[in-house]
């Protein structure tokens, strides 16, 4: 589904991502972990076209999106969330989902003018579904900026869903959540998978990653140091060294 081929991104002399290779298979939950500054968020930003890579290729669903702009990557079927919550705070929950319905499918379904006016009735009714999915139905008219932290995180996931993605990239969706919220997120990720959506999960909360992912790639200093199933990763010496800071000594 998503093929990353010898992908590199240098910021000046810093190799934020360095000849990275991995492939996310259709329908799986793929974890991307690593210590702070290991290049996880940079990888997500490269895939979603926030900035172009220095070298390498990104192939999604058979389509080369290496230098595609953000709105084109969404067209291709990739939606994302942000490490620091990003919502339209001055818009209601409902509006946040409504303006996010920009999938290629929705664009094809109606002409530009009727999309400008409000989109199809079907699209609007789907907003209700996303509200249900993220348990935000009773907050629909609340301004996004007034929501509690956990609700804002849920809204971000619902918004990614509103783009009818083939794949979602979640950048630390569990950051700052308590144990119960993490458990609810776990269920929600499985629900995404059940809908046939491929998930790339960047996360620091290990209990969630080990619990929910099918496979994991571990980054350190922009390079992949390990890849495998959660149990393989847990027993990998290079990974332990990277996290405990004993490598290279």
């Amino acid at each position: 589904m998503l093929e990353i081929k010898t992908l590199s991104k240098h910021f000046g002399g810093v190799r934020a991502v360095d000849e990275l290779d991995f492939t996310v298979r259709q329908g799986e939950i793929f974890g991307l972990i690593g210590p702070n500054g290991s290049g996880k968020s940079t990888t997500v930003n490269l895939v979603t076209g926030i900035f172009p890579p220095t070298a390498g290729e990104i192939i999604f669903d058979g389509r080369d999106i290496t230098t595609a702009q953000p709105h084109v990557t969404l067209d291709a079927g990739i939606a994302r969330t942000f490490q620091n919550i990003r919502l339209f705070n001055n818009m209601t929950v409902w509006e946040n989902l409504w303006v996010a319905q920009n999938s290629a499918e929705d664009k094809k379904a109606t002409n530009l003018l009727s999309r400008w006016m409000g989109g199809s009735r079907k699209a609007k009714s789907q907003v209700e579904e996303y509200l249900e999915f993220s348990a935000l139905a009773d907050k629909r008219d609340e301004l996004a900026g007034n929501l509690a932290f956990g609700e804002q995180r849920r809204l971000e996931v619902a918004r990614a869903l509103a783009a009818k993605p083939k794949m979602v990239l979640l950048d630390e969706p569990a950051a700052g959540m308590n144990r119960e919220e993490v458990r609810a997120l776990d269920e929600r990720l499985r629900a995404l998978k059940a809908r046939g959506i491929t998930v790339l999960l960047v996360e620091h909360v290990m209990e969630l990653v080990m619990e929910v992912t099918d496979r994991i790639a571990v980054l350190n200093f922009g390079q992949k140091i390990a890849e495998g199933t959660p149990s393989e990763i847990q027993n990998n010496q290079a990974v332990k060294d990277a996290y405990l800071g004993t490598s290279g000594d």
Binding site: S103, G118, A163
Partner: peptide, 25 residues
């Protein structure tokens, strides 16, 4: 009241976010 107005507002509020949501800013 239309979606077009909301699109303009999203661009003003957070250009990058609007872009990643498929809006050709």
């Amino acid at each position: 009241r239309s979606r077009l107005g909301s699109i303009f507002r999203t661009i003003g509020a957070d250009r990058l976010l609007a872009e990643t949501q498929g809006i050709n800013v």
